[in-house]
Design a protein around this nucleic acid. Structure first.
Lengths: 208, 208
DNA sequence: CTATGATTCAAACGATCGTTTGATTCATGA
DNA sequence: TCATGAATCAAACGATCGTTTGAATCATAG
């Protein structure tokens, strides 16, 4: 974790470094002293700009999830307009934006791993924050899935979605560590990854 | 986390409580003071019986993984004897022992969540410990998978196995939170869960 | 240039962390 | 019964945690 050059503002540098350190050591494991040292800012800067470590964590999520879920909802809306849509299409609308973000140049790689952390943590406050701010997205997708899987009970659907989301989150977190071969363009690598995940998840949802 | 009655030895009480608290708050998030208080033992007991927090964590894994991987290897050996074995059989040999342990009476529920934590953590020492002590199990299974998926390159196989293992771990960690319906026996619930997971994982491995 | 609010800084706060110490209690074989 | 090692205990160690403080510095509008 090399000290971050001052090309960005203090807030932005803190957010970027916090993201990678939370991904690496967890929310409890990464201290504000590590974060501020790596970001080349004063220790007090976190509490000055964000108020608390808890709020910094939330801000790390907000920065990525706002954009990510906007893309997801847009993709879902585009799909819903098509009357011949399939389960794979809806899954693709959920997965592809995350995959694109995790492979962009601004270092979204670490964030997918932060998301995987959040899944492993059963922290009450964090789950409430995510549910309060982004629950409507999952509810939209649950509705779309429900319409395509009418034989599934609501209970059955919800825990399958929960499992599928967790499995996908973990899988995507690990994708960042897989080196794509040199003879495969980044775009086609992403394409293949998305197809694998969609097929994987669709099989789980359609099971039985 | 109610104080543990003294039916068990000090070491056993510490291990049991540590397991559930590590599952709930993570390895960094659960302190030895929380653990020893809930286990009704003196704070110094951890360092006396285990040497350090690090060693306690390893012991929490060892207690469950020794038995779990023994069952896995036994199941795999039984499968390998059958010349008409399928991918689903090998996956079943990997998944079912974990599912059985996570549903037994001694509270293995929490441990599956501890395993999910370990997957999310990319901690160097912890990964080395698991690789050193249980890597041979994964290597055995990788061999079995490789023989059933001869068209997959070694690289391709290994990262698919990694992803499948992670996804399964996540899924199983969440299974503990899903209430089975009253009209479904625990055994048939486990049966269905195993089938879902096997189908889910097989689709991912066979993809393309 | 100067005044004012925003930002950064070194330093310290009390709390909690994992670990260690030395005395005390317990269990057990001689 | 008594001695000896194992086990438990209260207390404290230094380190590190998140947070707060008040002064120093910066940027900017009047």
């Amino acid at each position: 974790m090399r000290p971050q050059p001052p090309n960005f503002s203090t807030k932005e540098r803190i957010l970027g470094v916090a993201e990678t350190l939370f991904a690496r050591h967890g929310f409890a494991g990464a201290s504000l002293r590590q974060v501020t040292a790596a970001a080349n800012v004063n220790l007090a800067a976190v509490n000055y700009h964000f108020g608390s470590k808890e709020s910094l964590i939330e801000e790390v999520f907000r920065r990525r999830l706002d954009e990510l879920n906007r893309h997801r909802l847009a993709a879902l809306a585009a799909i819903e307009a098509n009357p011949s849509r399939t389960l794979d299409d809806v899954l693709d609308a959920f997965i592809r934006p995350a995959l694109e973000q995790s492979m962009d140049s601004t270092g979204g790689t670490a964030f997918v791993r932060v998301l995987a952390r959040a899944y492993a943590e059963h922290d009450e406050r964090l789950r409430k924050f995510l549910s309060d701010n982004y629950g409507h997205v999952l509810r939209e997708f649950a509705g779309a899935f429900s319409r395509l899987l009418p034989r599934l009970s609501k209970d059955e659907l919800y825990w399958r979605l929960d499992i599928v989301a967790g499995a996908l989150t973990y899988a995507m977190a690990d994708f960042g560590m897989i080196k794509r071969k040199n003879d495969v363009s980044e775009q086609s690598h992403r394409e293949q990854s998305a197809q694998h995940l969609v097929r994987f998840a669709a099989a789980g949802l359609r099971a039985e």
